[in-house]
């Protein structure tokens, strides 16, 4: 079970969180023309990386904040965590 550093609450066990997928996906702006390809990329197409992955988790049984977690998908090592509005350098 992973041990995730919630930027709001501190170290908490994985079972307090729910997974939210790739954090690098950006929703196309509202009221903007979007091509089929662009929309498919947003809704469906994911890379399923092996290695360092920036992903979303929600601390549902804690502060209910969505956070970004930089995790290695192969080793489960967690490098850094960020608040939802924090820029990832």
């Amino acid at each position: 079970m992973l041990y995730i550093n919630c930027p709001h609450c501190g170290m908490r066990s994985q079972n307090e969180f729910s997974y939210g997928g790739d954090a690098s996906v950006k929703r196309p702006e509202l009221n903007k023309e979007v091509s089929d390809q662009e929309w498919d990329n947003f809704v469906y197409n994911r890379k399923s990386l092996r290695g360092k992955h920036l992903e979303l988790w929600q601390h549902i049984s804690g502060c209910r904040q969505w956070i970004k977690v930089e995790r290695d998908t192969a080793t489960h090592e967690i490098f850094r965590t960020f608040k939802a509005d924090e820029e990832v350098a």
Partner: peptide, 17 residues
């Protein structure tokens, strides 16, 4: 109920802060 709340929180916190 629980999914809708998470859904709203997702858009408020991440997409349209």
């Amino acid at each position: 109920a629980a999914n809708v709340l998470s859904h709203l929180e997702y858009y408020l916190q991440l997409v349209w802060p």
